[in-house]
């Protein structure tokens, strides 16, 4: 029983950062119609921002995380301008270009930090006990920030004018531009937010995962599973699927092993693709 409860707490931590990554990926897909294969490398870039700012240059942890958010957001803007805008008519081309970008980011990380694991000391050593289960402050911090960021994103999307424009573009880009919404402006905002979310997830978890230049691979696999299970254009679906997948993955890892957990996750995704390609929460017409 204790182990079950502890695993559930661990799963909540995993769900929170996975949700950040998957929501970012869905935002990019929603507005631009492109699957960003380099999303895992954006996470990696965020993690290395913390390696550089916090572990090497001794800035405060929170400031380093903010630095990671802004830096990766700007990388996202660069991708939008250089890759996705010229390839807007060609979504498969955008995907392939993002694979090229992934290789570039990976190599830059190898040049800057070497192939070996970057070590990031924990920013706090405290922990709390919740009904017998232990949760370190480091992990609690990830959960809290993820919830705050997602709540802020929700308010932004539902309340602000930009949010309306963003959702309008996701539903029907042509009709939106007829209403005077700038497609480029909206794409920039979506790309900045989407990339920044991946970056902040990497920055937050950097002390917990020991980043390597190749960490993006497992991240993108996870993100794909989540957005497919959740329905590829659905933000709510991405969050729910992140929680679902985190629980399945963490429990299988604890009771069997990590590789089996990955196989189960991928099989889950294949099953969803076969039975209901729109995902568990996706809209019908996205088939």
């Amino acid at each position: 029983m204790d182990l079950l409860w502890q695993t559930a707490i661990n799963a909540m931590y995993a769900a929170s950062y996975m949700a950040l990554i998957a929501v970012g990926l869905v935002m990019i897909f929603g507005v631009m119609g492109v699957i960003n294969f380099a999303h895992g490398e954006l996470y990696m870039a965020g993690a290395y921002c913390v390696v550089f700012l916090y572990a090497q240059e001794k800035f405060p942890f929170l400031l380093s995380v903010a630095g990671g958010l802004i830096f990766v957001g700007i990388v996202g803007l660069l991708m939008e301008r250089a890759l996705f805008r010229p390839l807007r008519k060609n979504p498969l081309g955008g995907l392939i270009a993002s694979i090229g970008f992934l290789l570039i980011l990976q190599t830059l990380a190898v040049f800057g930090f070497g192939r070996r694991m970057g070590h990031v000391p924990p920013s706090t050593h405290g922990k709390i006990e919740i009904f017998g289960a232990i949760l370190t402050y480091q992990r609690l911090f990830v959960i809290v920030v993820a919830i705050l960021l997602l709540a802020a994103l929700w308010t932004f999307l539902k309340r602000s004018k930009f949010g309306w424009a963003l959702r309008a573009c996701a539903q029907d880009a042509e009709a939106a531009s007829l209403q005077g919404i700038s497609m480029n402006q909206t794409a920039r905002i979506a790309m900045f937010i989407g990339a920044a979310l991946a970056g902040v997830a990497g920055a937050l978890t950097a002390p917990l995962v020991s980043p390597t230049p190749y960490i993006g691979h497992s991240i993108i696999v996870t993100a794909f599973i989540i957005i497919i299970v959740g329905g590829i254009g659905s933000l709510e679906g991405a969050v729910i699927a992140a929680v679902l997948y985190a629980f399945v993955h963490t429990f299988v890892t604890t009771f069997f092993d990590g590789v089996i957990a990955n196989i189960v996750g991928l099989a889950l995704m294949l099953a969803v693709l076969v039975v209901r390609p729109t995902g568990l929460f996706g809209a019908k017409e996205r088939a």
Partner: peptide, 13 residues
């Protein structure tokens, strides 16, 4: 990988 990535992007564009 960097050069391959750049070649890939340039040829798609």
């Amino acid at each position: 990988p960097l050069i391959y990535g750049a070649i890939l992007i340039l040829s798609v564009l």
